[in-house]
Design a binder for these strands. Structure first.
Lengths: 126, 126
DNA sequence: CTTTCTGCAAACGATTTGCAGCAGC
DNA sequence: GCTGCTGCAAATCGTTTGCAGAAAG
């Protein structure tokens, strides 16, 4: 774990939403773009960071929930591309897990994690 | 609606999963890549087609559910990138709608649609 | 000294766009 | 004519990679 990687984890921990690489570079000036890309790949393979791809032009990155203990989903604005975190509801998670067991049993798929996105208009775009 | 666009809708209707552009070109030879890209943009803005972006190298396209009447979610293989459709469960949808109303009320977000992806290993990769 | 990390610049590849020809009205 | 669609080739741009030097052990 080098200083550069610690800096990335730092920036992501302070964020309340997944960040793009330009956003990361803006927050922590002085980092080389290529190193950020490379280190995010390393952190992703280490399971520390998750890459989130929306229809937006940039990929986004956030800390893995294993580390933060904060299970959440995403609000994605179809107008401006903004992405916000939203805490997961216990009831919804329960229903989801029931549905997942059924799906895994009938399809032969092995679910490791899930992703729920609500797509619509954010407060400022609506 | 030109012949080229009808051909795209045709191909997507016959598919049981969202297709990438190389897949579309393979199924319907003779189409120009640029026209396919352009027409998919047109169809997407017309609300006929949805673009799905995973961590895979290509975007994927499917018919909007308004047209097919077939509400479903996706199984995404983290190993090979394959994407399969899976029908939505009624119980899960009910819980989701309850959670969505609550979220819209408390955050000011306006949810228009949702996306549920189960990420894991497909039958052949597990 | 050997291995890994860094940053610059160049390469890559999916997607987009400029342009000229064509089809339809 | 005018407008919109097509296909080729070139451009765009987020991301990846080659390489040489710096840092770590």
């Amino acid at each position: 774990m080098t200083g550069n990687r610690a800096a990335l984890v730092d920036v992501l921990r302070d964020a309340t939403r997944p960040l793009t690489i330009p956003e990361i570079l803006h927050i922590r000036g002085g980092l080389a773009q290529s190193s950020v890309y490379r280190n995010l790949v390393v952190l992703e393979q280490a399971g520390v960071v998750h890459r989130i791809v929306t229809n937006d032009e940039h990929a986004r990155f956030e800390l893995a929930e294993d580390l933060t203990g904060n299970h959440h989903h995403h609000l994605v604005c179809s107008e401006c591309g903004a992405v916000e975190d939203v805490p997961a509801s216990a009831g919804l998670e329960a229903s989801l897990h029931a549905a997942v067991s059924e799906i895994d049993r009938t399809t032969g798929f092995t679910t490791e994690r899930h992703r729920i996105d609500l797509v619509g208009r954010c407060r400022t775009c609506s």
